[in-house]
């Protein structure tokens, strides 16, 4: 194998993109929430590593939905808690 596995190309992995601060602000004000209320994703998640996101970044996930065709979802990057 010449290149490392790119998880983002896998069919089960939807698109992950880091959101800019501006986008995060509009998202939070639109739903009237804080970042803590978003679902989480760990900093060492393979998809997070692939897009090189840092802790406290918000990631936009564009899923291919069974019902809507295309659905957006958001996750906050957090540190994996120690066992």
């Amino acid at each position: 194998m010449d290149t490392k596995l790119n998880v983002l190309t896998h069919v089960m992995v939807p698109d992950h993109t880091i959101m800019s601060e501006e986008e995060v602000r509009t998202l939070l004000s639109h739903y009237n929430i804080t970042t803590e209320q978003l679902p989480n994703i760990f900093h060492d998640d393979p998809a997070v590593k692939a897009i090189d996101a840092k802790v406290d970044d918000v990631i936009r996930i564009v899923r291919i939905s069974h019902t809507a065709g295309r659905a957006e979802s958001y996750r906050l990057v957090i540190k994996r808690p120690k066992k």
């Binding site: 998880v7 190309t9 089960m12 992995v13 393979p46 998809a47 899923r63």
Partner: peptide, 24 residues
């Protein structure tokens, strides 16, 4: 490596990430 899948969900989570686990 784009289509191969497993029925082991926790393995999918650790190799492909939490979103892949959700799909799995």
């Amino acid at each position: 490596t784009t289509r191969t899948r497993t029925n082991n969900i926790s393995e999918a989570a650790s190799v492909l990430g939490i979103e892949a686990a959700r799909n799995a």
